[in-house]
Amino acid sequence: MALVPALPKRFHGPSVWALYALGLIPAAWAFYLGATGRLPGNAVKEFEHLLGLWALRFLVATLTITPLRDLFGLNWLRYRRALGLLAFYYVLMHFTAYMVLDQMLRIPAIVADIARRPFITIGMAALVMLIPLALTSNNWSIRKLGQRWNKLHRLAYVIAAAGALHFAMAVKVVGPEQMLYIVLVTLLLAWRAVRTPFLRWKRQRTAGARSHTATQKAAG
């Protein structure tokens, strides 16, 4: 079931690099606008929020790879590492912008924020959890860790949930945009719960159809 034409194998590698380049454009463009005084109003906050929003988008995109394959037979596994790392880079930039541009490196204020404000605590926890995932995102770690790698990288579910929650808790009124990410993350995590029975059912159905055809052929 191919929804989109398969990419020729020789483009697989370059397309991943293109994703990294494209993925970093929003940050670079916003930084350029901010540095040249073209972001309206509270430039630092605008920049900070934009980085956070893109982090959340990349987290959601990372978690979408598996259901796309399960449901539509679309194999984009080769992009998942790039999407996950882009999410990590954006979370890191989001935090750096908060620390350097927003709080002007007032360390006591930053520490107090992280300790006392639940939404910042949750955001910080997501950043900390992303570090081991980013560090083990290389092929060597995948080989070395084996099954433990899969277990470790399920942290991505907790991180995405934390990200959506952080976004909703940061605003004065939870609006459509925050709801969208809560719903998306909920659906993507819920898919993990029903995935195994679904795949079993799908396998059985295909197997059943195949044996049915085989029987018909034999009879004919």
């Binding site: 540095a35 509270n42 007032r106 107090a112 924020d113 639940p118």
Partner: peptide
């Protein structure tokens, strides 16, 4: 007296300092 979700000790002055200057 802090807001439960952020400190009220400092503020950002809109339209000043830009991206790198200290507008806090």
């Amino acid at each position: 007296v802090d807001h439960p979700r952020w400190s009220q000790a400092t503020e950002n002055r809109i339209g000043e300092g830009g991206f790198f200057g200290s507008n806090r």
